[in-house]
Design a protein around this nucleic acid. Structure first.
Length: 899
RNA sequence: GGGCGAUUAACUCAGUUGGUUAGAGUGCCAUCCUUACAAGAUGGAAGUCGCAGGUUCGAGUCCUGCAUCGCCCACCA
């Protein structure tokens, strides 16, 4: 493996695509079943098959890829199972739109068979696009197991699930008031309805009593529904209207007679206190109608135009019917007034048009039983939701769940496996295929001459609900299913907790009698930098591939993972992506430095689990420090990842790589690297290489491309061909004393630099400094070594005069922890007055600290109740501060007497 | 109407069983083209942790109330 000179800056565009291709073609993403090993499985949240990549995808790819790569490196059989969703409504809408644009036709114009062909064509053309985009983000999915919800296997699972639920009596057909989408002409579930607050009008009008001039005043926001009224309701205890209960009133314009009823649902304070009842087009009225046995009048066609029940308004769209009717009522003197009123308008999630509650015959799933099991699984701890607060949201939804409308009057989806017998809507069987349907129909109904399959398809989420196991082969008892199921983590956005996660849990429990995963990790929405939702109409969408193209996929991923905490929305700003691009470049240059200084002999050792203890203890201070810090980092990053705190893990890596490895260790290493001591050189290179290589492993799940690229350039034996297959590092020894000593060194250097700047010493000017290591270090090798290090680290600025004696001349005096001191000569640099002032300020600080600590330690509550290590820590601090103050006082005296 | 989240430096955000003097990136000021990196280096300024109480030896962190913004659920015509 020849090591070539790396370019000065990392160029992601040059490596990402080919690297990914190599990973994929080499089969590194493939999960091979190995019964001696543990598995780690994530089923991807399947994107819409013809969808476009957005930041939500980038977010889940980042998080799921981190988990998958991490567990793969930990030696598990890691399967990230990819696939796409047919996305019934979304896809059909796209194709309908295209059909309208190109041919000016609706789907009904071309007919079901041809339209279905168009859908499949569309899917074939655009279906691969989204998965290509996921690849660009580095997703280490096992593409050999890719699934699509309309695949044969998954369709089989859907039929099986449906029939089982049907046989159990959990699926029923019924005529109820459902949410109707007039554009799509299909029913949608409650979840697919979104409410928006919009300005509107509250219309007051008169309901005339039959055979009387008297009237009941009624208020409505939707006058057109007057045409479907079958009663007027008042509160039973309302004195104003009590005497009218049981009387008959006349529907305006139409002249129909309807009763006045009493129901305590009516709010006396709202409007006029009298409520018109339209059971055919309002959910609450529907309930009231059922209670009172009122007729249900459907006044609309499927496209929300008025039907023949609307009398002369028949054929008009609902909005137009409203204005016409109101005008006619005004002319007839039946109106009272209008007032502005804020409306909560139900709109369909996809199309955005106003939902029309409409009575129709649909298929439903009974939810109570399944919901109870779903609740128990989370309550009992079989499933954990992260962040925990969403457990409450989940409970709340399942506790109040209503039956699920699963039929859709669409043409793109799984056709409901119900067969009607001899054209009779009341006689039907559920069956996995037509043969079984005949069998079942004959067994149940005897002579059967014709079977017709249900025209409706199933809600997309019905098939998605089976995803964790249908993708693994269920209902067949496949090896994949046995080995990989249940899956491990379900990672997705909190916005589909009800749509998808809850249903997967319920269906998993129902069909496999197991929770489909043990952990649900919910991420937040990615918003723009002002916190606004990204949308095409606002034009504030940041395309993940554009961002990745400009700054690198790794930078984008790192930004997404470190910028947010679980379940929390994040505001993405490109400055952060740029900053992380810079971080990638920093890492790149640490690698360049390491490789540049490498000799031919440095290689093999990095394949060992960690540095042998015996070698470690013999290392010089800086080396023991960085290796100790690395080992602490390994433990810390591992802990954070295990606890799903990926952002914290990422930040810890960032701080180590930039703040410790690059800023300090590499500088410190130069002392020995550029010395004449060949053994020392070799040792230093080995440590550089060791730390770099371990760091690459730790960072790989977060930034797969750059880490692999560098890793491939490292001169080592490569027991594994790719970093993604390398073992996750194990923490080695930590030398706490080395850490403390090196940190003291850092403190002192910072203090020296700070003093120079304070006194405005020009950077190029060297200062002769006297460094004194305190008595407890005076004898040990460490102090000499520290002084040498210091000389190197501030080579440009300092001429170090190592000494164990306090100098007598006037000098600025600096003290760091671990008994390190520095004296910077005053001559030519230091103004005595300023130095005295500086000393006073530092003494003031020290006294303040001593005061605070004394107060704390004098408090019996603190000494008795606080943890012993906390108390001891305070004592140590007090001693250090006292010592520091003592030195400062000595120095003050010395300076004064020297005057 | 019910529930949840957010409120920390100029901006975008971390801060995980309560424990020194609250951190990062960006921006800002000053200096530097030092032989890995100007996508860089060094130093610096910058926060009464939304407000008011409480618990505690000790609160950004726990409790109560309030304010502002946002989200979810429910759907009073």
């Amino acid at each position: 493996m020849p090591t070539q000179e790396l370019p000065k800056t990392y160029n992601p565009r040059e490596v990402e695509e080919s690297l990914y291709k190599w990973w994929e073609e080499s089969g590194f993403f493939r999960a091979e079943i190995d019964w001696t090993k543990e598995s780690f499985v994530i089923a991807i949240p399947p994107p819409n098959v013809t969808g476009e990549l957005h930041m939500g995808h980038a977010m889940f790819v980042t998080l799921e890829d981190i988990m998958t790569r991490y567990h793969r490196m930990r030696g598990k059989v890691a399967l990230w199972l990819p696939g796409t969703d047919h996305a019934g409504i979304a896809t059909q809408l796209q194709v309908e739109k295209l059909l309208m644009q190109t041919e000016g036709k609706t789907r009904w114009d071309v007919g079901r068979a041809d339209f279905e062909d168009m859908l499949w064509e569309w899917k074939e053309r655009y279906g691969g696009y989204i998965t290509k985009q996921l690849r660009r983000l580095g997703a280490s999915c096992d593409w050999s197991r890719e699934r699509f919800t309309l695949d044969e296997g998954l369709s089989e699972a859907v039929k099986e699930a449906f029939v089982r639920l049907f046989d159990k009596g959990l699926i029923y057909r019924g005529t109820y008031l459902v949410n109707w989408s007039p554009n799509l002409q299909t029913a949608v579930s409650d979840l697919e309805v979104e409410y928006s607050t919009e300005p509107g009008t509250l219309y007051f009008f008169k309901y005339l009593l039959k055979d009387s001039d008297d009237f009941i005043p009624v208020a409505t926001t939707r006058p057109e529904t007057i045409l479907g009224d079958t009663a007027v309701a008042v509160h039973p205890e309302d004195e104003r209207y009590r005497h009218l209960v049981g009387k008959t009133v006349i529907v305006p314009i139409l002249g129909r007679e309807i009763p006045v009823i009493a129901d305590d649902y009516v709010e006396r304070e709202f409007g006029t206190g009298a409520l018109k009842i339209t059971p055919g087009h309002d959910p609450n009225d529907y309930e009231i109608g059922k209670r009172h046995g009122l007729p249900i009048l459907n006044i609309m066609n499927k496209d929300a135009t008025l039907n023949e029940e609307g009398g002369s308004y028949a054929g008009l769209p609902r909005e137009e019917a409203r204005t016409r009717l109101w005008a006619d009522m005004q002319a007839a003197g039946l109106t009272i007034r209008e007032q502005p009123h804020e409306l909560n308008v139900p709109r369909t999630q996809r199309g955005g048009e106003i939902v029309e509650p409409m009575v129709s015959t649909q298929w439903f799933v009974k939810m109570d039983e399944m919901a109870a099991k779903g609740l128990a699984a989370v309550r009992g701890g079989d499933i954990r939701i992260i962040p925990e607060r969403f457990e409450k949201v989940y409970y709340n939804w399942l506790e109040n769940i209503r039956d699920w409308t699963i039929s859709r009057q669409l043409w793109w989806g799984h056709r409901i496996p119900i067969w009607y017998v001899d054209g009779d809507e009341e006689r039907f069987v559920a069956a996995r295929d037509e043969a079984e349907a005949w069998e079942r129909a004959r067994a149940q109904f005897g002579e059967v001459s014709r079977l017709d399959q249900e025209e409706d398809v199933l809600d997309t989420w019905f098939s998605s609900g089976l995803w964790p196991f249908s993708t693994l082969g269920w209902p067949n008892d496949t090896e994949d299913l046995r080995y990989f199921y249940p899956t491990s983590v379900m990672e997705t956005g909190y916005d589909i907790l009800f749509f998808w996660v809850a249903r997967m849990i319920m269906m998993g429990l129902e069909f496999t009698e197991q929770a489909p995963f043990h952990t649900v990790y919910l991420h937040g929405l990615v918003r723009d930098e002002q916190g606004a939702k990204m949308s095409k109409t606002k034009g504030n969408v940041i395309d993940p591939l554009e961002a990745a193209g400009e700054y690198g996929t790794d930078a984008l991923r790192f930004t997404l993972v470190t910028g947010a905490t679980p379940g929390q929305d994040m505001n993405l700003n490109m400055e952060r992506v740029e900053a992380n691009r810079n971080f990638a470049n920093k890492l790149w240059n640490t690698a360049r430095f390491t490789l540049h200084n490498l000799g031919a002999e440095e290689r093999a050792e990095i394949d060992t689990p960690h540095m042998p203890e015996a070698r470690f203890v013999a290392l010089p201070l800086a080396e023991r420090w960085i290796v100790s810090r690395l080992n602490q980092l390994i433990a810390e990053a591992t802990r954070h990842i295990e606890e799903y705190n990926f952002g914290e893990a990422g930040r810890a890596l960032y701080n180590f790589i930039w703040g410790e490895f690059a800023d300090w260790y590499i500088e410190a290493a130069k002392t020995r690297l550029y010395s004449d001591d060949e053994a020392a050189q070799h040792e230093t290179r080995a440590v550089l290489l060791h730390v770099l290589e371990r760091t690459l492993r730790l960072l790989h799940p977060f930034m797969p491309f750059i880490t692999e690229t560098i890793w491939q350039n490292l001169p080592h034996a490569k027991e594994t061909p790719s970093l993604m297959l390398a073992a996750w590092p194990e923490p080695g020894p930590v030398d706490a004393e080395a850490i403390a000593q090196f940190e003291a060194l850092q403190d002192l250097i910072r203090a020296i630099r700070n003093t120079r700047q304070e006194y405005g010493v020009e950077p190029a000017r060297k200062i002769a400094a006297t460094i004194v290591a305190a008595r407890n270090f005076a004898e040990v090798e460490a102090s000499r070594e520290m002084i040498a290090l210091l000389a190197r680290l501030d080579e440009q600025a300092l001429q170090i005069l190592p000494s164990l004696d306090t100098p007598q001349e006037q000098a600025a005096h600096l003290v760091a922890g671990e008994g390190l001191e520095a004296y910077l000569p005053l001559a030519g640099m230091v103004d005595l007055e300023r130095e005295m002032a500086r000393l006073r300020e530092q003494m003031e600080q020290a006294r303040g600290e001593i005061e605070r600590l004394n107060v704390r330690l004098a408090n019996p509550g603190f000494v008795n109740k606080a943890a012993p290590n906390i108390v001891q820590g305070a004592r140590d601090q007090l001693h250090a501060a006292q010592e520091r103050l003592g030195k400062l006082e000595e120095r003050q005296v010395a300076l004064n007497s020297g005057r």
